[in-house]
């Protein structure tokens, strides 16, 4: 593989990585802030067992999306030269 092409591919892949990392960080911060602020203000209106349901689904949304997006990064890294993603 030509060194210039490899360097260009690595540069483009780094941009995808920053996008993925930035999006996941934004998701965790905003979703976390909103869920915990609303629950701290209004959560006393529901029994504690129901509050657990909120935490469970918060964990599922953030957890599955984070794992999924990291998997996207892994897939791009694995195939970027085979499928010439950045040509």
């Amino acid at each position: 593989m030509d060194e210039a092409i490899e360097s260009r591919y690595n540069g483009s892949f780094a941009k995808d990585t920053y996008l993925i990392a930035g999006a996941i960080t934004l998701l965790i911060i905003v979703e976390g802030y909103v869920v915990f602020t609303i629950l701290s203000q209004a959560g006393s209106a529901v029994p504690s067992s129901i509050r657990g349901l909120y935490l469970l689904f918060f964990g599922l949304v953030v957890g599955i999306e984070t794992i999924g997006y990291l998997q996207v990064r892994k897939s791009i890294k694995q195939h970027m030269f085979d499928f010439r993603y950045y040509d």
């Binding site: 998701l27 905003v30 979703e31 999306e65 791009i76 195939h79 993603y85």
Partner: peptide
Amino acid sequence: HPARAVPLGQQAGMITLLVGAAMTLFICA
């Protein structure tokens, strides 16, 4: 390049909507 564009674009879209939904609910409420 659908193998890159679809997962990358769609998951970015999903995070955009999750973030937008949380912000919208909080600020409107």
